Simulated scan of single mutants.
Amino acid sequence: MTTATADEFETHRPRLFGLAYRMLGSAQEAEDAVQDAYLRFSAADRTEIARPSAWLAKVVTNLCLSRLTSARARREEYVGEWLPEPVLTSDGALGPLESAEQRDSVSLAMLVLLERLTPTERAVFVLREAFAYGHREIAEALELTEANCRQLYRRAVRRVGEPESRFEAEPKRREELVESFISAAREGDVVALEKLLAADVTWTGDGGGKVSAARRPIEGRDHVFRFLVGSRRTFLAGVEFSAVEVNGAMGMAAWLDSTLISVVAFETRDGVITHARAVVNPEKLGFVSRQLARA
């Protein structure tokens, strides 16, 4: 591949990564898919590629469709709750997230919902919702009819549910809430910690059988509060916390002896935390660790 062609591919890489990540829910697998697309691009006859952006999107989409089948099989054997691999988004890693709808499209909550879809439904939904593809463009990318794509899209929307913002309107308030949570956790202020939790709060942890984590979601303020207090006494001595933007929302990173041990994404409503998704599986923290190292 010539330098010019390699440079051209790099202009498409961020968008392709965003597409692959939304399809797969894994930053590592998304990077692999994009790299495979790079190799195909380098070997292709450029005279046959009229629109590189469309050609590459089609290649990445189909690479992801192939990966999703094996990924589903692995997730059926996953130990405990499965959560997507988190990505820090303050550096634009997943594209512009300027609206609540855009942030919601990359949230861990939405990516979990996308697991309900078949691989093809997911491809249609992602291309339509996240990248504003028309049904004709989607049909060309997936080699389906427009009518079929429309049907798949309607089915995907029904399975995912009606879109709704999972974020409070004011970003500053969300940031203050997370900072308050971190301060309470750092100082062991259990009274302040409990006040930050909604009555119906849920805590979901993903340890993948690699580290200790609740095997099922913990529901209700009392149960989540007791879990957090117990965790702090047992595991969190010497842990450092910092606020981060994870998958479009304010979240928290936890460190122990310079090793990232957890990334937590929060959903909030009316000034309290309604859902926390904590990724503690070390195999899912490599991408965020590299992002933080580059910061």
Rank of each mutant, 00 (worst) to 15 (best):
E176Q: 13
S66E: 15
R67I: 08
S105H: 07
R128N: 09
L152T: 01
L144V: 02
S90D: 15
A147M: 07
P84H: 04
S70I: 12
L127I: 07
S105C: 09
P119A: 08
E179A: 13
S53E: 12
S53G: 10
E168G: 14
S66W: 06
G134Q: 06
L97Y: 07
E129W: 05
R150G: 09
T89Y: 06
S107Y: 04
E121K: 05
W55T: 00
V59E: 06
E146Q: 09
R67W: 04
Q151M: 11
W55K: 03
Y78H: 15
E143W: 00
L111I: 06
P119D: 07
E162T: 14
A109C: 07
A71I: 12
E179L: 14
F167S: 11
A156L: 06
R150L: 12
S99Q: 07
F131D: 03
R136T: 11
R173V: 14
A132D: 12
F131I: 02
L108H: 02
R116K: 14
R159I: 05
G92N: 05
A93V: 14
E146W: 01
R75N: 09
L88G: 04
M110R: 10
E121R: 01
E146F: 01
C149S: 11
S180Y: 01
R173I: 11
L117E: 05
L94G: 05
T120F: 11
V60K: 02
K172N: 09
I182D: 02
L83S: 04
G95P: 03
D45H: 05
R158V: 13
R166D: 11
T145A: 10
L88R: 03
Y78W: 15
V178D: 01
E48I: 00
L114C: 09
L63F: 08
P96Q: 08
E115K: 04
A156N: 00
M110A: 11
V126K: 05
P52M: 01
A71C: 07
S53V: 09
C149I: 10
P84D: 04
N148E: 14
S180V: 02
N148K: 11
K58E: 14
R155A: 13
I49V: 11
V87T: 06
A71R: 09
L144D: 02
F131K: 01
R72I: 13
E168S: 10
R166N: 13
F167R: 14
R173T: 13
A109Q: 11
A169R: 09
V178L: 06
R51P: 00
Q151K: 13
S53A: 14
E48D: 10
C149G: 06
